[in-house]
């Protein structure tokens, strides 16, 4: 007889590589990606009796748990949206922190700069960045992204289109393109 704990390992281990890649796409940091995967495994272990019946749905379920956890964390702490700033800063100085003008030396660069791509991706909204990286970097189909995020297909198509357009605008503005 297989011990339930070993059965759990056998069920979820095949999902871990893809799950970690997904987490890294969302967070961009190894430690944060590992934390997210760990949270999913903890939740999965507490529901291990249900996992055996999921078969092909297990991967999407784990991805959905991970995505929801990521979004909750982001909104809970509002790391991506609500930022704290020192009390003595003026509102006009705050405004200068968004959309910095292109630096002349950047505009002169003709080659595609991967670090600039990373920076531009960070300027996208959470939702745009997520759909773009899931679709264009990880190769998820929009229908799979719909299953994971719960966002309607039409909205996802619109987000993907706008995310690409916004990314191109950001890269064009600083001469990366």
């Amino acid at each position: 007889m297989i011990h339930p704990s070993n059965n759990f390992d056998a069920l979820v281990r095949p999902q871990l590589d893809k799950l970690y890649r997904f987490a890294f796409r969302l967070t961009g940091q190894i430690a944060d990606a590992e934390d997210l995967v760990q949270e999913v495994l903890i939740k999965a272990y507490h529901r291990r009796e249900e996992l055996t019946s999921m078969t092909d749905a297990l991967g999407p379920w784990m991805a959905r748990v991970l995505y929801n956890r990521f979004v909750d964390d982001q909104r809970k702490h509002a790391r991506s949206r609500l930022r704290s700033v020192p009390l003595d800063e003026e509102a006009d100085q705050l405004s200068a922190t968004e959309h910095e003008p292109a630096l002349p030396e950047r505009a002169a660069q003709a080659e595609f700069d991967i670090s600039r791509l990373k920076q531009a991706l960070a300027e996208l909204s959470l939702e745009h960045r997520a759909v773009l990286l899931m679709h264009d970097s990880e190769g998820y189909k929009l229908e799979e992204i719909q299953t994971i995020t719960g966002v309607p297909l039409g909205t996802l198509k619109s987000r993907l289109h706008r995310a690409r357009a916004r990314l191109r605008t950001l890269l064009e503005a600083d001469g990366t393109f």
């Binding site: 909104r75 809970k76 702490h77 509002a78 949206r81 609500l82 930022r83 704290s84 700033v85 020192p86 009390l87 800063e89 705050l94």
Partner: peptide
């Protein structure tokens, strides 16, 4: 969210 002491943008 959590409001920090100071300005939150």
């Amino acid at each position: 969210t959590q409001l920090q002491a100071g300005k939150n943008v």
